Each structure stands twice: as C-alpha cells, then as structure tokens.
Simulated assay, not measured.
Amino acid sequence: MRLRAQGINNLDLLTAVEQTPRTLFVPPQFTGEAYSRRVLPLECGSFMEGIDLAVRILHFLNLKAGQRILEVGTGSGFTAAVMGRLTERVLTVDRYKTLANTAQQSIEKAGIRNVIVRQADGSNGMPGEGTFDRILVTAAFPALPRSFAEQLVSGGMLIAPVMVSDTECRMLKLVKTGSRFDREDLFDVPYLPIVPQMAQAL
C-alpha cells in the first residue's frame, strides 16, 4: 500500500515483489527489517537499498515478458530475482565472489531459474554477451556511461547512478534511440562509486 501511494501501480511488478520473499535475501540479523526503507549492510562493504527504493527503480525499468536484462551489482540478489519473475532472462554480475555465491543461493531458494549470477567486472557492461533490453547498474559512475550503448537494443534502456558532485549521486534513465541516448534525471540515490575489476579477496 505504501508503494501504491507513491504512484507505483504496476500490478505485475507488485505481484512479483510479493512472490519474492525479501527475507531470503537480507542478512539473518535483519530479517525483521526486510521490508523497511532502511539501507541494510551486506558483506564485502556492500549494502542493499530499502524496499521502497528497490521497487521504485524496478518501476522505472518498465520490465516486460521476453526481455533480456543485465544487472551490474548483484548485491543481495533481490532485484535480480524480482526481474527474473517478470522477464525472460537476467544476467547479474558482482565483483565479489561472496556476494555472487550468497545471491545465487537465495535466488535458488526463491525457486527462480532464469537468473544467471556471475562474479565478473561489470564496469563496462558484459561485452560478448549480446544485447540487452534493459541494463540496471547499482554502483555510481563518475560520468555518463556511454560504453554500455552498444550492449543495448534500439529502444533499450539503461538505468544507472552518476555522481553529479562529490557528495551527490543521481539515478539517470537513458533510452537508446539509434546511436544516441535520451536522458532523464530521476532522483538522488545513496550508491557507492563503481570499482573496476573483480575483487581479489572476498
């Protein structure tokens, strides 16, 4: 009801969220806060966004059946799991092996089979994996990430956070039209700067 009050009225999305128990994805000590707005810490210095922000971002992606999705920054795996319920295939990557393994286990417990989890450096997307209808990035770029353009289908969408100042990070929506992006600034987000290369530890 809280999300609907914010204008998120996509029934397919809300149903997918309801069918994906977030308690499977939060660290055990935070089970009671699984559906709170609070940012919750994960291993490797990462975090998962509050439920409101997570669903708000998924709402802007406008996910449909048959789409192929790339997510850079798996984190807990919750958003990948929800996207898996709505689309054909999700490839989600994280630089930390610990996070990728934990997310894989949680996604399997949720009974979702069309999400592929990999430890990989996603700072330039996943060249060689074909094109995607949607790309979601959950780590902030210092500037608009144009390297992802060729990995999107025409009409495809990239949602990514960009540092607009030293302390301010904003979610941008970029829709590919031909060889250019149409940009829309969405809202401020608390994401950490993107780090290239896979983590050597953890």
Score class of each variant (00 low, 15 high):
Ala81Leu: 07
Gly7Asp: 02
Phe148Ser: 03
Leu11Pro: 06
Gln29His: 11
Leu174Pro: 11
Ala140Tyr: 05
Arg95Gln: 11
Pro161Glu: 12
Val137Asp: 00
Ala34Val: 06
Gly7Phe: 04
Arg2Ser: 15
Pro27Glu: 08
Ala140Arg: 01
Gly156Asp: 12
Gly130Trp: 02
Ala140His: 02
Phe47Met: 06
Arg85Ile: 03
Phe60Cys: 13
Gly45Pro: 05
Gly155Thr: 08
Pro193Tyr: 09
Ala160Tyr: 01
Ile194Asp: 04
Leu40Lys: 05
Asp121Val: 05
Gln67His: 10
Lys173Leu: 07
Leu86Asn: 06
Val162Ile: 13
Arg146Asn: 08
Met126Ala: 15
Ala80Cys: 08
Leu3His: 10
Pro193Ser: 07
Phe148Arg: 00
Thr98His: 10
Lys97Trp: 06
Met163Lys: 14
Pro28Gly: 09
Leu61Trp: 12
Phe47Thr: 13
Ala103Pro: 01
Phe181Asn: 12
Asp94Gln: 11
Ala5Glu: 14
Met163Ile: 03
Cys44Val: 07
Glu150Thr: 13
Arg2Ala: 14
Pro127Phe: 05
Ala65Lys: 14
Pro193Val: 10
Ala110Glu: 05
Lys64Trp: 00
Leu53Arg: 04
Leu40Glu: 01
Thr15His: 07
Pro196Leu: 02
Tyr35Gly: 15
Val82Asp: 06
Thr31Trp: 02
Glu184Ser: 14
Arg95Ala: 04
Leu42His: 07
Val162His: 03
Val55Ala: 10
Thr167Asn: 13
Val162Lys: 00
Ser154Ala: 03
Ile116Gln: 14
Arg95Asp: 01
Gln151Cys: 00
Ala100Lys: 06
